[in-house]
Design a binder for these strands. Sequence first.
DNA 1: GTCTATACGAAGATAGAC
DNA 2: GTCTATCTTCGTATAGAC
Lengths: 225, 225
Amino acid sequence: MPERAVAGGKENSVETPVESTRERLLNIAEQRFGEGGYEGTSLRAITVAAAANIAAVNYHFGSKEALLRAAVARAMAPVNTERRRRLDQLEAKGEPSAEQLIRAFIEPGLDLVLRRGERGPVVARFIGRVAFDPSQRIRELYAAESDPVEARYLTALQVALPTAAPESVAFGYLNMLGLLALHQSQALTRPPGAEPGLDGQEDPGRLADNLIAFLVAAFDRGLRP
Amino acid sequence: MPERAVAGGKENSVETPVESTRERLLNIAEQRFGEGGYEGTSLRAITVAAAANIAAVNYHFGSKEALLRAAVARAMAPVNTERRRRLDQLEAKGEPSAEQLIRAFIEPGLDLVLRRGERGPVVARFIGRVAFDPSQRIRELYAAESDPVEARYLTALQVALPTAAPESVAFGYLNMLGLLALHQSQALTRPPGAEPGLDGQEDPGRLADNLIAFLVAAFDRGLRP
DNA sequence: GTCTATACGAAGATAGAC
DNA sequence: GTCTATCTTCGTATAGAC
């Protein structure tokens, strides 16, 4: 492999720093799992694309599923951190409104993921697809990673919507999760410069605002007591 | 196979009529594809469960994907028929409201599918999962089956919501599709008699009403002009 | 026309030697 | 870390029995 760059330099260059095999595997896994799903993606496809040996996944992670688990954990970590940070900040100021809570939930999922360089949409699509994977075991992987903040959001939402029954709040939360995953999973279905209007998102920057407005209206007036 | 019933009798018995191999394959495919996804389900698993030979799928349908296509078409047909019927009926009376249109879209997807005997939830889950399959080719199978009514709904919704921009209407329609698929795909995740409140659906019969109320509020006040 | 038994080549994940 | 071997399972094709 003569074209393989030499690792070890400081990462202060303008160029992309040299990635370790482990990192390359995680990056490619995010891309391919988000494209074809877990079952639909072979380890061979991943290792070839990552310019790694077929056995590299087993060496670094132990199994295909462990690779997925690691990728999910890495992708969700900054989202969860940001959600917690916003929740802390809101609650320090008193009782947050439903809109503030919805924004604090949606924006880290869309915003953060849609706006950090080229990999953003790939990460978004990956997360969205894992959340809706046909296999329950894989959906549970996602649920386990987003669980930690779930309880806090549910109780805060209930406080913000005192007239709504607890089941209704849970129903709304589930719908919020679902719509977020839907729009995350569509991150790359929209080719850059695609014709606007077909899916209502000519401007991806407004996606978060539109989704938040949609959800706020539904929470405020669409939940049964 | 001595326990195989003899076919050929009129289907006027109270008992379940004897199913043909083709029907059994479709039924099992609905169940397994809805459970593990297309890629996650092998033809062998399907044919074993259907008490058919491994070659039966190829004989009756031609390929695994053709089996899926046939299953999708069979599952969606009554839903589309009912949607068209309702749309005709509404438009005969004048310009339908957004709520009427949303109801005419959601109820055939949830209602019809959740309330026809034991197979209902299986069909619902299958449809919901196909709509969100990780593979684009499979999602397109679903889209092709639901396309025929899509244009009618979009234009009728635009008339009912004259202040909303066309992209906003399309955005709302996409969200409606997504939430319907979400709740369809959860049809069997909820075990019968499961603890209420966790997902806000202690009473499945109210699911349609709750979802419609949620969407009506979002369409009426959550779409940008 | 239906269904069965069997075989094939490709691709799957993983383990052990290096 | 890599390479190779291994053993499984996949979807599909075919030839022939009912």
